[in-house]
Amino acid sequence: MIRQLFKFREMLLVIIIAILLAVFSTRSQGFATPGNLANIFNDTSILIILALGQMTVILTKSIDLSVAANVAFTGMAVGMLNAAQPELPLMLILVVALGIGGVLGAINGMFVWKLNIPSIVVTLGTLTIYRGMAFVLSGGAWVNAHQMTAPFLQTPRQLFLGLPILGWTAIVIVAVMYLVMSRTFLGRAIYASGGNPTAAVYAGIDVGRTRFFAFVISGTLAGLCGYLWVSRYAVGYVDIAAGFELDTVAACVIGGISTLGGIGSVAGAVLGALFLGVIKNALPVINISPFAQMAISGSVIITAVIFNARQERRRGRIILRDRGASEQIEVAA
């Protein structure tokens, strides 16, 4: 199991992240201290959770471009709920966040499952619809810090063993997702329906239904992040997390999750997200304009795609590239 966890790809990422940290700490003394590393992890928590949702969808040979819009809508909804009904307990708000996110994910999933519409088209559409709905819901108004209650804002910031609850949430989600992907029927079905859909059907797996549940997982996690986002930044507005769906895809691609489906691991997605998080936090330290971040993540995505393609090609012998041949790439477990 340990060898499975630290396959070549994941180990390489760990080494690269370690080298990055070492280089950055030569430029700034405080960068690699435990306290700052905990800060970086905490800062990256939301990306980690969303990347895990994106991973489940990509593993089934689909893509969910609506996650960031889902975050915006759910965040807006729970923020307004908290402002309007301050007496509601936080647990209930969390359930509402998970519920709204799950329903939005299920809508994507139904289109993909029942109507067989390519996921990229469905989620491109719902991406604008969900964010538009956030505008309709709020009328363009903001939910500001003073309108939200103390438990709503403070709970994710509480320190527990030196790490805020937000960071612990990410750790719990990582653990749960690891168990789901490796120890449950659904997790194995997700790998199978992406690795070789035809074989999955013959093995008795309902591929469409599996994709539906992948979208529900992604949506539910996005809903959770909607609350976490609004609480962390203490403000809710229509444009929160705009463009963040690309970061989640980037984290997955960097983490070695194949966009052809069926290949990838929880550890990869987490490390991919951490890689982006380290770079994002290091830019101000090494005096690079934050405006450069977009171009850097773009270059990293392209490099990672090239790198992934080389690795995947080594697994299967592809004489002529076509969809059939790429499906024959063995499922990496």
């Binding site: 690309l246 405006f291 450069a292 773009g298 270059s299 392209i302 795609v305």
Partner: peptide
């Protein structure tokens, strides 16, 4: 390089607009 166009162009999308931002 025979890479999947969806991911590649998501990458170049951030790269091109990122250069404009720089």
């Amino acid at each position: 390089l025979r890479l999947p166009s969806i991911v590649v162009t998501i990458g170049t999308m951030s790269l091109f607009r990122g250069i404009a931002y720089i």
